[in-house]
Amino acid sequence: MVQRVLEVDKLKVGIRDDGRKISIVNGISFHLHKGETLGIVGESGCGKSMTSLSLMGLLPPGVERHDGDVRLGDLRFKDFTKKDWRKIRGKKISMIFQEPMSSLNPVYTIGEQIMEMILSHEKVSKKAARARALEMLKLVGIPRPEQVLDEYPYQLSGGMRQRVMIAIALSCNPEVLIADEPTTALDVTIQAQILELMKDIQNKLHMSIVLITHDLGVVAEMCDRVIVMYAGEVVEESSVVELFDHPKHPYTKGLIASLPDVEEQREYLSSIPGVVPAPGNMPSGCRFAPRCSLAHDRCIETPPQFTTESGSQVKCWLFEEKESEVAAT
């Protein structure tokens, strides 16, 4: 069996409003195999970033884990102290954020920021850390790496900053990399460079990646397996080919059908009516029902996850008869 490096088990993340728990991420489960790239897709506001931040122990103030657990090898996040987090962040699990400018510290040089990551995890001399920082800048393809080491973030372009973020994230050879919309803020030609770079480094370091994006083109390009999130829940899990060829959940179908097809010209695009509901204001039963053209009587109840013949997991009543085993939700 393929080794599972990361396992998320019925994770619930949310806020408290007058003591009432409002969930943002509502009991999601998924796993990550060694060396694979798992995509997480969904419209904005579906809870993708809250999921990834909870994997890093970096939830914003006011947002907390209500239930469930995450396992990374034999570590369990549930019991973690702040000190434990500091030890594993960057070393075992690392993250690249959407906005490269706001996640680099403007008052330290690029070299200092990479060195800090290395020195906080490894007992090496400053000189060795600096040499390693330079090596990392070369690895991510930064032009004039010797000079950039002593430059500040504002002196770099968006694409270079994102490369620096990758260099920092990878400087301690993490087992798992979480990339939250790593190329959304970048131009397509720079996006192409960064995606190519991530694939290249993954092969070299045999890393596992969770790639969060709302861009299905990026998913097609990069991922082996995909989970689709809607309103804080996982509604489908499939291999990438299955997802594009036979999308199952009505939400997944809707997302794929909305894409402009670069090969085939259509006068009109299909779309999904309505918008993602806000946390605390979720419809009861199937959360997608108000936007679903196939909603029926059954959908007043919350559907469990059904496993299809192709091995996909689908949280939708339409797959009830066809399935064999019912996974608990």
């Binding site: 397509v188 996006q191 861009d215 083109g217 990026v218 097609a220 390009e221 990438v240 594009f244 894409l259």
Partner: peptide
């Protein structure tokens, strides 16, 4: 180059 950078529509 710009057009070639367009992500592919299918894996």
């Amino acid at each position: 180059a710009l057009l070639s950078a367009l992500p592919s529509p299918h894996p």
